[in-house]
């Protein structure tokens, strides 16, 4: 059994990305324990001089550190990810670098047809920044378009093809976690470099 953290990439009360992560949690309960984390109560990042993570941020970082992998589900705002998700990632990169070398899988849902495609591309680029250096699973795009119509009353995805696609990606992710850990263990110097990263002294 793997232990994963699922991060809902929005602070909105109503979110189909929350529904999607809840569905993933339920659907793969025999393969992984997934704890779903909200970021809506995190303070907005403001680059404090003391570089201290606020309590809520530290709590999330500790959970990420302990987890085998992270699943982020993000909506799309203005061709990109919501500011609140970006703010969360800024906290992590600026204070404790909890995502370094952490295997990450991305999913996304949107009300429109495109299913958060541009947001996912931005999110990949952001997570790939040296200050974050997450290990994002490549070649695995999972998009839910028309997400308001995608779930039934019990919060289950109704499209069987989409479920199969998700199962494949999720199985890949479990293997990806193991492979990444092998890769990461052989190269500890990356971690040191990224841990010492500073926006000021690069």
């Amino acid at each position: 059994m793997k232990n994963f953290i699922g991060i809902i990439g929005t602070n909105s009360d109503n979110s189909t990305n929350r529904l999607l992560l809840q569905f993933i949690q339920k659907h793969f309960a025999d393969k992984a324990n997934i704890e779903i984390c909200e970021i809506k109560n995190l303070p907005a990042f403001n680059k404090p001089e003391d570089k201290k993570a606020p309590y809520e941020v530290q709590k999330l970082a500790d959970k990420i550190r302990k987890a085998d992998g992270v699943i982020i589900s993000s909506p799309e705002y203005n061709h990109s990810v919501p500011a609140i998700l970006k703010s969360t990632l800024e906290w992590l990169s600026y204070t404790n670098q909890a995502l370094i070398d952490k295997p990450v899988m991305l999913t996304g849902a949107s009300y429109g047809r495109l299913g958060s495609s541009r947001a996912q591309t931005h999110l990949r680029q952001i997570l790939d920044a040296p200050e974050l250096k997450a290990r994002i699973m490549p070649s695995s795009e999972f998009l839910i378009g028309y997400s308001l119509q995608a779930f039934d009353d019990n919060g289950n995805l109704t499209d069987q093809y989409k479920i199969e696609e998700l199962e494949q990606i999720f199985n890949d992710f479990i293997k990806f976690v193991d492979i990444t850990n092998q890769l990461v263990n052989t190269n500890d110097s990356h971690k040191k470099k990224a841990t010492n990263f500073s926006w000021e002294e690069n």
Binding site: A44, F45, N46, Y77, N78, S80, V81, P82, A83, I84, L85, K86, S87, L89, E90, S93, H122, Q125, I126, L127, D128, A129, E131, L132, W199
Partner: peptide, 18 residues
């Protein structure tokens, strides 16, 4: 540039303004 992108503070402003 924060993490290969714009700061969340600016992103937030643009979200309010859209």
């Amino acid at each position: 540039e924060y993490n290969h992108s714009i700061p969340s503070a600016l992103q937030s402003v643009l979200e309010w303004l859209s």
